[in-house]
Structure formats: C-alpha cells, structure tokens
C-alpha cells in the first residue's frame, strides 16, 4: 500500500493533464464544430461539401488512427509536434466533427416560424442566427453536447499511446513498477468516473437553467 501511496502525486498530475487535454480540446472543438455546422447549412455548395467530407472523415475513422497519424505522420511531412499539442490537435479535430453534427441538429430543430419572424422584421441572416436561432439551438443540443464532452474525457486516455503522461499512462506505469495493476487501474477508472460525474452535474444545471424560460 505504501508504494501506491507514493504514487498519489503522480496520479494527481496525470489527472490534471487528462482534464487539461479534455477541456482544451472540447473548447477548441466547440468553436471549430460551430464553424463547420455553419458551413454545413450554408447555401454555398463548396463550403457545404467541405463540411460534409470533413465530418465523414473524422467521424468515420478510428480516433486511435487519427492520433497516431498526427503524431507519427506529421513529422514525416516536416511538421514536428510535442505529444501534448499533437494530442490536443487530434482531439479537437475529432470532436469538432461530432459537435458540428450536434449543432446542426439543434439548428434544424428550431422552428421555421422563428426564421420567418426574424426575417419578416428585416433581420439579416447572421443576426437571425446569433439572436434567434443559436440560443434555441444550443438549448436543444445541450444534452448531446454534454454526452460528447464526457465521451471526449474518456477518449483522452488514447493519448497514452503517443507518450502523453496522462491518467491512463500514469496508471500503467504505476502498475508496472509496483505490480499492483488492479489497484492502479481501478483508481484511474474511478478518477475518470469522478471527473465525468462533475461534468454530468454541470450539464444538468445548464439544462435546467436554459429550460427555465420554457417551463
């Protein structure tokens, strides 16, 4: 048990890295996903086609392949990246594909009458999006977006294969140096669960707050 107790600081550090990977990639993916959703619903055919191809590629291939391709593949093209930035880049691209579909679903679920009411008062397209459609779409998409955030938190464990010392990799090394694999992985799993429980509560609070106007 002593050996494991000694591992607490390094486990905490791994946890911090995991949270950092998840939160950063989610925030960046949220922004990129929003842009992709806009392209996807735009009336410009080229933008729309690019968005469709993007989503198809990043949603249709394994995340592990994307991670390794970015980390091992980019240097071959002369682009060097340290493990953490390369992992964040991959997670961002990957979650943007999913989030863009969540946004699109939310936007499409906003009633046509809302567009018409805004249009009939002379609002521009972009202002209609900002003032009328997005606030409603975001509320509709919140459960799906919350799911995505939680899934991403767990997906960050794949960064361990490109030497990022996050929670999973810490657990692995603690396990191999102490031969207490069960304890190490159970603790790591519990920490993921704890992080995601906090996210779930946050999602619930957000949903309740946004639903208040509709009660």
């Amino acid at each position: 048990m002593d050996l494991l107790a000694q591992s607490v600081p390094i486990l905490l550090k791994g946890m911090a890295i995991t949270i950092f990977l998840g939160v950063t990639s989610f925030v960046l993916g949220f922004g990129l996903g929003g842009l992709i959703a806009l392209a996807r619903i735009s009336r410009f055919t080229l933008l729309k086609a690019l968005a469709i191809v993007y989503v198809s590629v990043f949603r249709g291939t394994p995340l592990l392949i994307q991670i390794m391709l970015v980390y091992f593949g980019l240097p071959q093209l002369g682009i060097q990246m340290s493990p953490v930035p390369s992992a964040i880049l991959t997670f961002t691209l990957y979650s943007a594909a999913y989030l863009s579909e969540n946004f699109r679903g939310g936007i499409l679920a906003v009633e046509k009458g809302q567009w018409e009411a805004a249009g009939s008062m002379g609002m521009t397209y972009s202002r209609t999006l900002r003032r009328v459609v997005f606030p409603q779409a975001l509320r509709i998409a919140t459960p799906a977006i919350g799911n995505r955030f939680i899934a991403l938190m767990k997906d960050t464990s794949l960064a361990s294969v490109v030497t990022v010392v996050e929670l999973t990799r810490v657990a692995e090394s603690v396990g191999s140096s102490t031969f207490r694999y069960v304890e190490a992985f159970v603790v790591a799993g519990a920490v993921y669960w704890l992080i995601n429980s906090v996210l779930s509560v946050g999602q619930e609070v957000l949903e309740r707050r946004m639903g208040r106007a509709y009660a």
């Binding site: 009458g113 018409e116 009411a117 249009g119 009939s120 008062m121 002379g122 009328v132 509320r139 106007a213």
Partner: peptide, 28 residues
C-alpha cells in the same frame, strides 16, 4: 430587408421568440 422592415407580419402561430420575455420580444 428594407421592405420587410416596413411591412410587419403577425403569424397564425405567433412565432414569438421563446427565449425572450414579452418585452424583449417587442424591443428586439
């Protein structure tokens, strides 16, 4: 847009903005 600003529309299904209060709807 200019013509739409000059011709307001009242819809069968109201189409109020549900995320805004009555006053916010009016001043939007």
């Amino acid at each position: 847009r200019d013509i739409r600003v000059r011709t307001a529309m009242v819809f069968q299904q109201f189409n109020l903005f549900p995320h805004m209060t009555a006053l916010q709807n009016v001043i939007e």
